[in-house]
Amino acid sequence: MKAKIIITPKKAVLDPQGKAVLNALEHMGYEGVQDVHVGRFLELELDGDRAALEPKIEEACHRLLSNPVIEDYRIEWED
């Protein structure tokens, strides 16, 4: 079982990396890209009961894997 964790900067937080990538895409002629947000991707390989693991992984996301002051996260579970 895997927990895929996608961490992105909060909307209100400056994302200079996203802006730099957006500029590069525009320069290269890729049209229609409105904005880019650069974040982090973590894949946790897990063993155990998903129902028991879920709250723990949520807690880990909140305490360590993301910083709630500046980042949002979402978890995608894969069996």
Partner: peptide, 17 residues
């Protein structure tokens, strides 16, 4: 100290990168 919650806010990547 910010990560530890002993100070408010956070430090992020310099705007200039």
């Amino acid at each position: 100290l910010c990560e530890a919650g002993l100070l408010p806010g956070a430090l992020i990547r310099n705007r200039s990168l």
